[in-house]
Nucleic acid binder design. Structure first.
Length: 275
DNA sequence: GCGATCCTGGCC
DNA sequence: GGCCAGGATCGC
């Protein structure tokens, strides 16, 4: 469900938990798909103080004072919710509850259980298999135009849609913002990387950054069940040019939106505009 | 590089 | 009942 702008919005909405001490962590019986044992997460984080919330791509890192972190991915349907007090609601989709010393609580809910929970004990995440597979974040200053081109060129056989979704090349885009980036860069999602010139790849990088920043500015895209950590919806949906507009005009009226399936997922684009 | 697969729920 | 969904991994 959530892509970079949604995860970033969740992160900033949860700044209230920075500085709080964790007093309890509970997991559901039917845990999400997790690599690290709940026991290890418990041992690492219980009674420690959450120093900082960080984001890398679509991952959230809950970092304690020793720079050990719980690494969370929300998958397709994951939600986080912070509450001043524990309402003890009986919802079988809740898979983790983090209780703080002051009685407030952070709930992780994930109906489809595609989310992941893991750990890292190094500030750079080098001991975490999820994080080491990740390319540089789209919004990271270390991702120069040259580096982006260099990383794209390692995958000449991919079409541009698959390129944008590939978290190992550069991290943060999902299906919505991939479609929106390609529209903004006027690039055909079916075009192969090998047939795309350097300056057009730079257009794609620039477009992706603009679209992601716009998404953050508008609090993310609430299409169905996305909320930030305090239960607020985002309004980015009102600014999407092509996503979920099959058969309609693009938002700016410059083209008609078509839906195709690539790599088993919907791609929305305007063929007359994107070449 | 591609398709199948992990899950649950909503909608037609 | 069938199709669709803000994701990513794994095996061919």
């Amino acid at each position: 469900m959530p892509e970079l702008p949604e995860v970033e919005t969740i992160r900033s909405s949860l700044r209230v938990i920075e500085g709080k001490r964790i007093s309890s962590i509970q997991f559901s019986k039917l845990a999400p798909i997790e690599t690290t044992q709940p026991q290890a997460i418990l041992r690492t984080l219980k009674n420690s103080i959450l120093k900082k919330l960080e984001r890398r791509g679509k991952y959230l890192l809950f970092k304690n004072q020793e720079d050990h972190s719980l690494v969370l991915h929300l998958g397709m349907s994951g939600q986080l919710r912070y509450q001043k007090e524990d309402s003890q609601e009986n919802d079988h989709h809740i898979h983790m509850r983090i209780g703080f010393e002051d009685g407030s609580i952070l709930i992780f809910r994930d109906p489809r259980r595609f989310g992941t929970l893991s750990l890292t004990k190094e500030p750079n995440g080098k001991d975490n298999l999820f994080l080491t597979r990740l390319g540089p974040d789209y919004l990271s200053p270390e991702l120069s135009e040259e580096l982006f081109i260099q990383r794209c060129r390692k995958h000449p056989g991919l079409n541009l849609k698959a390129l944008t979704l590939h978290q190992g090349i550069s991290a943060g885009l999902g299906n919505i913002y991939a479609c929106e980036s390609l529209y903004r860069a006027k690039l055909d999602p079916r075009k192969k990387v090998a047939k795309t010139k350097d300056h057009r790849l730079i257009d794609l990088l620039t477009a992706a950054r603009e679209v992601l920043l716009l998404g953050i500015e508008h609090g993310g895209s609430s299409l169905r069940d996305y909320f930030d950590g305090l239960g607020n919806r985002g309004v980015m949906k009102n600014f999407l040019q092509v996503y979920d507009r099959e058969g309609e005009l693009t938002l700016d009226g410059k083209g008609k939106v078509k839906r195709i399936v690539q790599q088993g997922r919907s791609t929305f684009f305007a063929p007359e505009v994107q070449k």
